[in-house]
Write a protein that binds this DNA or RNA. Structure first.
Lengths: 167, 167
DNA sequence: TTGGAATGTCAACAAGGCTGACATAAACTG
DNA sequence: CAGTTTATGTCAGCCTTGTTGACATTCCAA
């Protein structure tokens, strides 16, 4: 680990406990902003953040299996199932039995589901876009570098896989 | 809004919908990592993330009032009170009646509370430090710039006030 | 054919949000 | 001083979203 002495070779001031604490608080307050807009939209319906997450990743990877979604979201199947059931009942998500492996269910958004996804991600992207534009490209690159380094290694892989599938 | 055309003057590729979506997913996965270590410690006790947040900000601003904490945390007094009550009962937090305004309660961590705060923030800082070190000072600056731009303006002020009080 | 994997479902429970209502004491205001 | 506002606490009840455990079904694979 780096010694705490500032000015030892390169500038290590950004690693002081105070800087780290500010980073922690920045994450806390920023995440609140990050979720605020979709939360507001969802609170008018019978849905919550868990529904948003499911919709987001089904849209991102149409035809994904329940198990795959489970790994991405990091919750139990019982918890996800409750959310999926309501989304299927309400006609936002369709579940198709797998062709090669009929145990698997492949998940897709219906037109209504896509419409809601659009509404939610528009709101979230608008805030992200404003933040990115204000901060500029170099800051955005740094933002993503730090976030990636903050993930568990398993989630890094998931994130990278998703990133490459969409690029 | 910026037009989607890449190469129009400066490079605006970082504002494409795909880039924004990656930013959204990076926030999601990174926040999971960000909370994972304290969550693990707390799950062994009878405490959760809400207790961690209260402890963090009481430590950050000793003597803060309940109302001030309410504003920082963005929850209802009933919700905060439930958490504070257990922390006070368990001897981690002390509540002193205000001197000038006796309606107010000023909150402090006891020694035990400070010990737990230390344990939790050590874990969280360790991850943050590793991420910061891997990413380097420029990336860290960008990270904080973007996060700050992502906050609600009200929270930006709160964040800045805290930042300046600690620097 | 048997074992294990993928999925679904039921039940129960807990944390931590929320609202609404009400109590108390202190401070402020006319 | 009387009345209002403010800060706080508390009770009751509800919702979402997470958990565990148990069990059924279906189907692939050895």
């Amino acid at each position: 680990m780096a010694d705490g002495r500032p000015g030892s070779g390169e500038n290590l001031l950004y690693l002081t406990d105070e800087q780290l604490r500010q980073g922690i608080e920045a994450m806390f307050f920023a995440y609140r902003g990050f979720t605020a807009d979709p939360d507001r939209i969802l609170s008018d319906m019978a849905y919550g953040r868990a529904h948003h997450r499911a919709i987001h990743f089904i849209n991102r990877a149409p035809g994904t299996t329940v198990n795959n979604l489970l790994n991405i979201l990091g919750v139990t199947k019982q918890s996800l199932n409750r959310v999926l059931r309501t989304l299927i009942e309400d006609g936002l998500v369709q579940s198709h039995v797998g062709k090669t492996d009929k145990r698997e269910r492949h998940l897709f958004l219906t037109e209504d589901g896509q419409a809601l996804e659009q509404q939610l991600s528009d709101a979230q992207r608008a805030r992200m876009r404003a933040a990115f534009r204000d901060a500029g490209p170099d800051a955005v690159a740094g933002f993503r570098t730090v976030l990636e380094a903050m993930m568990d290694t398993e989630m890094q892989r998931t994130y990278t896989r998703l990133k490459e599938s969409g690029a």
